[in-house]
Design a protein around this nucleic acid. Structure first.
Lengths: 204, 204
DNA sequence: TTACGATGTATGCACCGTTCACATTAGGGG
DNA sequence: CCCCTAATGTGAACGGTGCATACATCGTAA
């Protein structure tokens, strides 16, 4: 632990992850270069290669961290959401996470989930199961798999549309209200459509 | 127009866009470099700068093209979708577009919509209005703004989750069925939740 | 015809990811 | 205790990139 000489860093891997996070927050995805990470960690340009196979591996590790944090914040938002209000609150947390850490969020979803990056696959599975758990409890009689996909997609899409400037993001309050409105809209308008469409039940 | 000498290209801007599209399809976003575009257009590395301020401008132009194509395909999918079946069909086209042109789709939504890139803003506005038009017609009594946001977010989220490998994309049929199931799930499960939540109407 | 503005070229700089040979050091087996 | 090996960090180098700058070429309009 004590670095009598400065040659060996001690925990370079952790230092790289921290540096990468900082760069991501400060300069966006563009600023995250392996060399910049090394510089910030006070180490030579090629040192990180002892801990990460390549740049992608570093990004994947950072993304996995992001997944864990997102999962934490979602769980903290509401223990067992069941009403539209609850769901909207969770959705707000999801979108807020994306807007608070835009570059990290992009890193989390920018590239196809490499099947070789087990850390990353496992981390996303946690979120997927969290959503499924909510849906199973809140909608006992429904197709939990399909509906949880739909719910995740709705919230994920809201996050990305906001992130990409397709929706108004002028103030946090505006965003919150938009997310709430979108979630509510689903639960109020869906029956309206069924009436318009004149369909009692939907075919399998 | 005939290039007696090869010095002047004729229509380098269009050639660059075409080359960029090809590179995007062949090598993904990573392969799209200004130099590669110039090479493919058979021109010096810095020639494209006469037609695009920088790399971002090129990407924005390609993205704008993508928006136009997507809008076309959506419009062609169904003239006036109103039933869940119709909406699901449109959603399938949206998701299929993303999966057929993954790198292009990412380019379209990867970076914040630069307010200076009017071409890009205008192109996304077309899609936004298309969705709003559908919602206005299909859900006469609802908050068209909020609901169209929700619908776009649902479909957009489905596209991205598939693109990022968070959902099964093994065969096109599987994808189609997942999208249809997710869309249907909304219209069948939403009332179920309202029952569970015990709410007649949602507060403003 | 000639001058000019638009278009394409050549060169150079700083940065990037990555590889490879090498230096340093921690920690365990004699 | 010492030395040897494996892990870790260094340095130089290669090819690629975006971009700025100075220069060459050419269509066109006065």
């Amino acid at each position: 632990m004590p670095q009598s000489t400065a040659y060996h860093h001690g925990d370079l891997r952790a230092a790289c992850l921290r540096a990468a996070r900082e760069l991501l927050e400060e300069d966006g995805s563009a600023g995250l270069s392996l060399r910049a990470v090394a510089r910030r960690a006070g180490v030579s340009a090629t040192a990180p290669y002892r801990h990460f196979a390549d740049r992608d591996a570093l990004v994947s590790a950072v993304a996995a961290e992001g997944y864990r944090e997102l999962a934490e914040q979602l769980a903290a938002a509401h223990p067992a959401p069941s009403t539209p209000d609850d769901l909207a609150a969770v959705a707000v947390v999801y979108v807020r996470f994306a807007l608070d850490h835009p570059a990290l969020f992009r890193a989390m979803f920018a590239e196809p989930c490499d099947p070789t990056s087990e850390e990353r696959v496992a981390a996303t599975a946690v979120i997927s199961e969290y959503v499924q758990g909510i849906v199973r409890d809140a909608f006992p009689g429904s197709d939990a798999s399909a509906l949880s996909t739909a719910v995740w997609a709705l919230v994920h899409g809201l996050a990305f549309l906001h992130l990409d400037g397709k929706l108004d993001t002028s103030t946090p309050e505006v965003v919150v209200e938009q997310v709430r409105a979108a979630v509510y809209a689903f639960f109020t308008a869906a029956p309206a459509m069924r009436a318009v469409a004149g369909r009692g039940e939907v075919s399998a």
